[in-house]
Structures are given as structure tokens and as C-alpha cells.
């Protein structure tokens, strides 16, 4: 953790970058209490300052998440072309509610506000990767593709 933090000057201007990096480095895609403490120590600010920032932004999680985080866009352009039913299908396929992680610990299902790829609505992100033009069939395929990719790597 120290190594990641020391790439930045010790000012709060870089707090968001530090939180991104620490979260990305954690296999369960979240900010551990130790990570938040480390940022506070490095920046010499109260821990509550760091927690306050980390809990504000949707891309950070203070709870452990799956290996992959699914963020399905639910903004009007995606909604218009059926994103709502896709959420049901994902929930059913993974047997989770929004915000929960699948039992095998692989996928966490989240929703997101506009992802800015409305030209291929409905769309979702899995980690940093975008998937568009989703249909009921394709969305399940995408999930299974990710599983297969994991199995072979």
C-alpha cells in the first residue's frame, strides 16, 4: 500500500487517485479499513476525512465485492430500450439483488447512471470493460464468457 501511495505527493488533491489505486489493488474490489487508514496517515488528515470522501462516490465500496463488478446502466436512453428487464435477467441468472455478490464470489451486481455510450444502449460495464447492444440472450452470454475467460487464464 505504501508503495502505491508514495507515487503521489502527500496532498488531499490526490486522495481520489489513491482510493482508486488501493481499491483496484484489492482482489475483492473494495477499500479495506486498513487502506483508508493508510491514506489518512499518508496525508496526515483525520481518518474520518478519508471515510467521508470514500463513502460519497459510487465507484468506491467499503464492503467486499465480487471479483468482477457489473454496472448496468439504468439511465433514460438505456431504459427506453429495455434495461429494466435486463436487470431482472441478471439478478435471476446470478441469483442476487442489486448491490449483492453472487454466492461463488465472482460477480457483484450494481446499477449505474449514464455510462456515456448511449449510441449502443442498453449498455453495462464489467470492471473497466464496456458491453453494448445488450439483449436478453447476449447479456447471459457475456457473463458466461467472463466466467470462461477466468477459467482459462
Amino acid at each position: 500500500m505504501k508503495e502505491l501511495l508514495e507515487r503521489y505527493p502527500a496532498t488531499t488533491e490526490y486522495m481520489l487517485d489513491m482510493l482508486h489505486d488501493l481499491q483496484d489493488a484489492e482482489p475483492k474490489n473494495y477499500l479495506k479499513p486498513e487502506a483508508l487508514q493508510a491514506v489518512a496517515d499518508y496525508l496526515s488528515v483525520p481518518t474520518s476525512d478519508v471515510v467521508s470522501t470514500a463513502t460519497f462516490y459510487t465507484m468506491y465500496s467499503l464492503k467486499p465485492r465480487g471479483k468482477h463488478v457489473i454496472r448496468l446502466c439504468e439511465s433514460p436512453p438505456c431504459q427506453l430500450v429495455g434495461a429494466e428487464s435486463l436487470l431482472d435477467i441478471l439478478g435471476e441468472h446470478l441469483n442476487v439483488q442489486v448491490g449483492e455478490t453472487s454466492e461463488d464470489g465472482v460477480f457483484t451486481l450494481e446499477t449505474a447512471s449514464c455510462l456515456g455510450v448511449c449510441g449502443v444502449a442498453p449498455a453495462m460495464m464489467i470492471d473497466a470493460e464496456l458491453y453494448g447492444n445488450l439483449t436478453k440472450e447476449r447479456i447471459v452470454e457475456v457473463i458466461e464468457d467472463v466466467r470462461r475467460r477466468d477459467a482459462t487464464s
Binding site: 496532498t11 486522495m15 476525512d49 467521508s52 470522501t53 460519497f56 462516490y57 465507484m59 447512471s113
Partner: peptide, 19 residues
């Protein structure tokens, strides 16, 4: 880091200050 309100200029500035 994912907050619509940060498109508002003063929120954006707060966010840049790490808040």
C-alpha cells in the same frame, strides 16, 4: 469516482480537493 453532482462546478472543485 462516480457522482453526477460533480458536474456542478463547485462540487467538482470540492472533489478535486479530495472531499
Amino acid at each position: 469516482a462516480g457522482a453526477y453532482v460533480c458536474g456542478e462546478e463547485t462540487s467538482l472543485i470540492e472533489s478535486m480537493e479530495g472531499k
